[in-house]
Amino acid sequence: MLIHPPRFWNMMARSYARRPVGNQAAYEYKLDFTASHLSSQDRLLEIGCGTGTTALIHAPNVAHIDAIDYSSEMISIAREKAKEQDVGNVNFEVSAFDCWPIPVKDQKYDAVLAMSILHLVLDLDATLDRVSNSLKEGGLLFSSTVCLEGVEKYAIPALGAIGLLPKIRVLTQEILVERMLAFGFSIEHNWRPENGSAAFIVARNGARRR
C-alpha cells in the first residue's frame, strides 16, 4: 500500500499525465538499459504503473505485461493510451501490489518494474518480499527510487506533509541496496545521474525461500 490514499492520485492523474518527464536523458537511459535485458518471451509485472507510459514503451519487446496501479483514474488513462496505440499485450488493472496475487511457481514473472514507487510504499520490506516471491529465480527487478541525501531528507518530506509534493519515505541509496540484499537480491546495476535524486537499481532475484 502507498503512503497516499488512492483519491490523492486520482485527483493528480490528469495533470500528472500532461507533465513532462523531469530528466528525459535519465529516463531514456533507464528505458534502454531495461529493454536490453528483456526478451520476446518475457512476462513482466509493473507495479505503480501510473498512466502506462513505461509499460507501453516496453510492450513491443516482451510477450506480456501486467501493469497495476491502485489509482483507477491512472489506469483509465493508461487504457486510453493502449487503445490509441493499438497495444494488445499489456493488461492494465486497478490494484495495490499487496492485493495482486503472487503467481504460482510455473507462472512467475521474468521481471518486475518498480519505477518511481518504492519511496512511496508504507512497508518497503513487505514490498521487496512480495517482489521476490513474484519473480522467477534469476528474474530481474528494475527500480527507480527517489533517495534523499543532505537537506533533501528534511525539505522534501516537509513539502509532502503540507501537500505541495507527494508524501515520500526517507530512503538513502545505501539503505535501499541493503534492504534488497536482505531479501535475497544481488545488485546487477546501480546508477544515479549527477543531476537527479532517483537511483536506478537493477537487482537479480536469488533462491531464498524457494
Results as ranks from 00 to 15, higher is better:
E174H: 11
Q41E: 15
V112P: 01
L181E: 14
L135T: 03
L176E: 02
E84K: 15
A67P: 10
L135N: 10
I68N: 00
I47S: 04
G163D: 04
P60E: 12
I162F: 06
I57F: 12
A182I: 03
P6E: 00
I57A: 14
D106Q: 14
G88Y: 08
L135I: 02
A25V: 13
V21F: 11
D98N: 14
L118I: 12
E80T: 09
L122F: 03
V94G: 00
V177N: 04
L113K: 01
N195R: 13
L176M: 11
A96H: 02
F185M: 06
H4Y: 09
T172G: 10
L45Y: 06
Q41A: 14
V121F: 00
A26W: 07
R14D: 12
A67S: 13
T51H: 04
A25W: 08
I201L: 11
H189P: 06
E174C: 04
H37V: 02
H4P: 01
G196C: 06
P157T: 07
I77D: 01
A207T: 07
L159W: 09
C99D: 14
V170D: 05
D32T: 13
L148D: 07
L38M: 15
N61Y: 15
S76V: 00
V90N: 10
I117H: 02
C49D: 02
A59Y: 07
V170P: 02
D69N: 04
R14F: 06
P103I: 03
K108G: 05
F185G: 05
E152S: 14
A82Y: 08
R7C: 02
V112Q: 03
L113F: 08
S71Q: 01
I3T: 03
